[in-house]
Design a protein around this nucleic acid. Sequence first.
DNA 1: AAGATATACTGACCCAGATCAATATTTGGT
DNA 2: ACCAAATATTGATCTGGGTCAGTATATCTT
Lengths: 235, 235
Amino acid sequence: MFKREVSCEKCSLRPICLASAISPEQLDEIDRIVRRGRSIKRGETLFHASSPFESVYAVRSGAIKTYSLAPDGEELVTGFYLPGEILGLEGISQEEHTSTAVALETSTVCEIPFKRFGELAVKIPSLQQHFFSIMSEEIYKDRTLHRLLSKRSADERVIALLLSLSARNRRRGLSGNEFRLPMSRYDIGNYLGLAVETVSRIFTRLNKSELLEVSGREIKIPCLATLRQSYTGEN
Amino acid sequence: MFKREVSCEKCSLRPICLASAISPEQLDEIDRIVRRGRSIKRGETLFHASSPFESVYAVRSGAIKTYSLAPDGEELVTGFYLPGEILGLEGISQEEHTSTAVALETSTVCEIPFKRFGELAVKIPSLQQHFFSIMSEEIYKDRTLHRLLSKRSADERVIALLLSLSARNRRRGLSGNEFRLPMSRYDIGNYLGLAVETVSRIFTRLNKSELLEVSGREIKIPCLATLRQSYTGEN
DNA sequence: AAGATATACTGACCCAGATCAATATTTGGT
DNA sequence: ACCAAATATTGATCTGGGTCAGTATATCTT
């Protein structure tokens, strides 16, 4: 199979990825440090928890989940990453990866060696600023998750995840109304602090309502606005 | 009252604050941009959600809590900040503060104007790196909170918070065994996704056990190791 | 295409922690 | 030092979602 190693300059994801907000002349500077086109098959690992931290990664295609293990082996799914999104950020301060990243489906990623990236960010202030912004965004999203986990019901959590996936699809120019879940019910439940059975029941219930059409991992949202208001409201 | 405006250079918190890992010659560069010694009394606001983001803040003394409000007015306590800790990071990407910060007791803070800080970070690579690290640490801690909220029982959540406060006190050279909680039961419950009553009951129960001595907001931990293992284990 | 294995669904039952309702204790203001 | 308001405790009851147990449906392998 032919592997297209698209430069950041030509990459369709650029507007939403790391290399947005960089002037064209400086684009090839970042192009020079990014290692492109690494492909990982479903179930394969991109990096392991407690391996030395050297790079962060941008998803090019596919979907990645990250998880960490408690000392007793209990798994926690910490995030789902779709094309254009950056993962591995929690490793920076610990100097090792603190989570394991595995592909949920065949995926390609761009590797950004972090030391070289830092050197470049010092030369390109807008790049530094943008990276601050990406990390800040991650913190901001974690606050949203905090609220979801401590204040919202099981139904609201699942709906919020669906709305998030929908919005992220739309941002990449895909349909926000119809998509396929890259993750299992187990992963959803684990991420949202719910039992698999609960997630399953919620999907069945939503499917019976007019809010959603679910068939296995295929999702269809007839009306986003309706779903959105059912989330912060009655239902 | 005499206000001591200690420079970063002379500040006892430097080793754990923003200005660690900066060479002495460059210290006064950061000293020049930091606005020091702002004092806020208990209950006063440091910054408001949706006010323009201009600075991040380092706690010099006292304790600050941050919270955000859902559209329906529901409050979520998003964090507690003790001396040496940086708050306001989630505002960077949104260009406005996304939480409100209020003093839990009389506190002083150092304001770090973010635009100027960025300019400095570009000139001092180790400062940039350190700030990446601080933000990464915040993300990492959010993962810990995620696990706490989605996998741990009410008792474990409260104990984990106490252990966190204890460790942060120790890091500043104070006692990790005896301290006063700066926040109310309400704040604790809100932060940990628990009802106030539950928090209260847990404190009473812990007080009856040999793990903890609680009297209002005064906490005494007879043996940290024992408490720690009760957290990931039996009890 | 058939079997094996992983994933998803459904039902019955139960319990940790929420909610409701009072009472007790702090804390701050004068 | 006193009063009011805020904060904390305790008890009784209820419930959302967990757990256990079994069945059904996908998906992978050969």
